[in-house]
Structures are given as structure tokens and as C-alpha cells.
């Protein structure tokens, strides 16, 4: 049984990595300037100085790296939140965590915090906003010692509304320079010129993935409820604290770099659970890989569908995610 399971898991991982490689190569090749797949390696090795080389290295490759880190992060954050809350509908966006992070980043833009403490101001404020919202949603949804899923989702949606209203308020009172920055960033794009931010989001997502993997058994136990998990020897309070921090870190980093990209954390974990089952040992890593490929493909679509204009990638994920949300809501296992 174990051998069969390991074989199945390895096969899944190989397939997901192949999909990721195909998606990445397509991302390199497809765009307003088409670069044939066969030429890519040649250009990367020998084409220094050519226009194609700077398109690949300066624009497309960083974009793919960001898509991998952010798609993986958001999908992983969704998996962790769904595991902790035992609810397939929660994810960074539906719980208002993305909204909190975006409010944090807007405050940074308006109060020019980045000029005082450097570029790190964006991820830090995103993380702080995300963490604050998770804490609020969690404490507000506990009634009489039990977590009420419907209260939690509604609280999350309301916090999202409040956060976006506050963002609009900030936009209304801000200077036109800041306004441009906020609008540009809120649209949600994987275009990020700052190499430090790219590095931070990459390291952050990798750290989140590794730490989550250490908690995969605890997440499996939490599926039975907090009491039962504790009876199986899991320190539930500590585990939840760590996972809360990781989920806000992943969301905060993603939002500070790419704005709000909705529903990646809903679509991918749901799809992966259907394919590979609910064991977090494989679910965590396959959600990460799946989320990475998914966001690259959405980005290719967003870049090309009304070329030469670009759609914000959040538009694509929002449409797909909204439909998937309604579909999951109709499933018989989902009780609100």
C-alpha cells in the first residue's frame, strides 16, 4: 500500500513539474513579440545584447518567476486555511486577508513609508495587514468556543468590503502621484521591476512551503477537529499560530508585489483534492506547483487576449474562481 501510494505521489509530482515547465516555456515564447521555442535556449546562451535577449531576461523570465512564487504562495495559503478551518471555501481572498494586505500596502504608498524604511515597507505592511485580518476573522467567528464557518466567511467578506472602502478613501484623499501608484498596483499585475521584491517573494514562498511541509501531519489531524487532533497528540494552538503566520506571510508578500489576485487559493486546492485526495503530505506541494502553473497560464492569457493591451491577471482568476466557488457551494459535502 505504501509503495503504491509513494509511486502515485511521485507520478503526480512529475506530471505537475512537466506542466510547470511547459507553462514556463510557453510564457517565455508567447507575447507581443513571438520567440520560437527552439530559439529560446540559443538566445539565452549566445544572444546577449539582442532585443530578444532583453525581452526574455528583462521582462518575461522575471514575470514567470513571480508567477511561480505568487501562484504557489496563494494556492498554498488557501490549502493551509482550508485545512485549519475545515472549509473548502476559505482562501486569502474570501477571508478578507488579501483585502487587509492591500490596505496595508496602500497606507505605505500614501504615507510614503517606502522612502523612510526602503522597499521592504511594502512586504512588511502587506504581511501586517494580512496577519491583522486573520486574527480578526478568527476571533470574531468563534462563538461559544466553536468556530462557525458561515460567520467566518461572512466576516471575511465584510472585512474585504471595509478594506476596499478604506482603500478608496485613501485614493480619494491622496495626491495624484500616489493615486497613480495605487491604481496601477491595485489592478494586479505580475510586472515587477524591483529585483529585491522579486527575491523576497521567492524566498518567502519557498520558506512557507518548507515550513508547511513540516506541519502536514498536524494538518491531517486537524481535519478531525481541534479536540480530536489534540487527542492524537497535536499541539493545536501552536500549530494554528504557526500556520496563521505562514498564511499571512504568503498572502502579504503576494499582495505587496502583485496586488489582489483572487481565488487562486480556492481553485487549485479544490482541483488538487479531487485529483490526489486530501492527504496534506502531497496536497501541500501539489497545490504549490499547480498554483504556479495556473498563474503562468492565466498571465499568458491576460497578456495576449486583447494584445497589444494587457488585462490584469486578477480579471481572469476572478472569473474562473467565482464560477468554481458557486460550483463548490453546490457540492453535498459543503455545509455552511
Amino acid at each position: 500500500m505504501l509503495d503504491k501510494k509513494i509511486r502515485q505521489w511521485i507520478l503526480t509530482l512529475i506530471i505537475l513539474v512537466i506542466i510547470l515547465i511547459i507553462a514556463s516555456l510557453s510564457g517565455l515564447a508567447i507575447g507581443s513579440t513571438k520567440i520560437p521555442l527552439t530559439d529560446i535556449i540559443d538566445i539565452l546562451l549566445n544572444g546577449k545584447g539582442t532585443a530578444e535577449y532583453s525581452i526574455l531576461m528583462g521582462i518575461r523570465l522575471p514575470r514567470i518567476i513571480i508567477a511561480i512564487a505568487i501562484g504557489g504562495s496563494l494556492s498554498l495559503a488557501g490549502t493551509l486555511l482550508q485545512g485549519m478551518f475545515r472549509n473548502p471555501l476559505v482562501e486569502p481572498y474570501t477571508l478578507g486577508i488579501s483585502g487587509g494586505a492591500s490596505l496595508g500596502v496602500c497606507l505605505t504608498i500614501v504615507f510614503s513609508l517606502h522612502t523612510k524604511i526602503g522597499i521592504m515597507a511594502y512586504p512588511i505592511s502587506g504581511f501586517a495587514g494580512a496577519g491583522l485580518v486573520i486574527f480578526m476573522v478568527y476571533t470574531l467567528s468563534i462563538r461559544g468556543g466553536a468556530l462557525k464557518p458561515n460567520t467566518m466567511l461572512l466576516t471575511g467578506v465584510m472585512i474585504s468590503f471595509v478594506a476596499s472602502s478604506l482603500v478608496m478613501l485613501l485614493m480619494a484623499i491622496s495626491k495624484s502621484d500616489d493615486l497613480h501608484n495605487i491604481v496601477f498596483w491595485i489592478m494586479g499585475s505580475l510586472d515587477e521591476p524591483n529585483i529585491t521584491l522579486i527575491k523576497i517573494v521567492c524566498y518567502g514562498s519557498m520558506a512557507g512551503l518548507v515550513i508547511s511541509l513540516f506541519h502536514c501531519h498536524n494538518l491531517n489531524a486537524l481535519a478531525l477537529g481541534d479536540e480530536q487532533a489534540a487527542l492524537l497528540g497535536v499541539d493545536t494552538a501552536k500549530t494554528k499560530k504557526i500556520l496563521f503566520i505562514i498564511a499571512s506571510l504568503l498572502t502579504g508578500l503576494s499582495v505587496s508585489v502583485a496586488g489582489i489576485i483572487m481565488f487562486v487559493g480556492l481553485i487549485i486546492p479544490h482541483f488538487m483534492r479531487m485529483v490526489i485526495g486530501s492527504d496534506h503530505r502531497i496536497l501541500i506541494i501539489s497545490s504549490f506547483l499547480g498554483g504556479a502553473s495556473f498563474l503562468i497560464m492565466c498571465d499568458i492569457f491576460a497578456r495576449t487576449v486583447i494584445s497589444p493591451l494587457e488585462l490584469p491577471v486578477g480579471v481572469i482568476t476572478g472569473i474562473i474562481g467565482g464560477i468554481v466557488f458557486i460550483y463548490i457551494l453546490g457540492q453535498k459535502q459543503v455545509r455552511l
Binding site: R86, H217, N220, A221, A223, L224, G225, E227, Q228, L231, L232, G233, V234, R273, G277, S278, D279, Q333
Partner: peptide, 27 residues
């Protein structure tokens, strides 16, 4: 949890299979 095992009245286990559920007892 290696010495006491508890079976409560209402059991819930999200999406896992029966085998995965029982295996959690070895955690």
C-alpha cells in the same frame, strides 16, 4: 495519546478515506 484513545460521539473527517482516517491513529 499513545496511552489513551478516545472515541467521541460525533465524528467528522472532511474528505479523507476510511483508511486514511484510521491511519491518523498512528500519528
Amino acid at each position: 495519546s499513545t496511552k489513551t484513545a478516545v472515541v467521541m460521539q460525533f465524528q467528522n473527517a472532511a474528505y479523507m478515506t476510511v483508511e486514511e482516517y484510521i491511519l491518523l491513529g498512528r500519528l
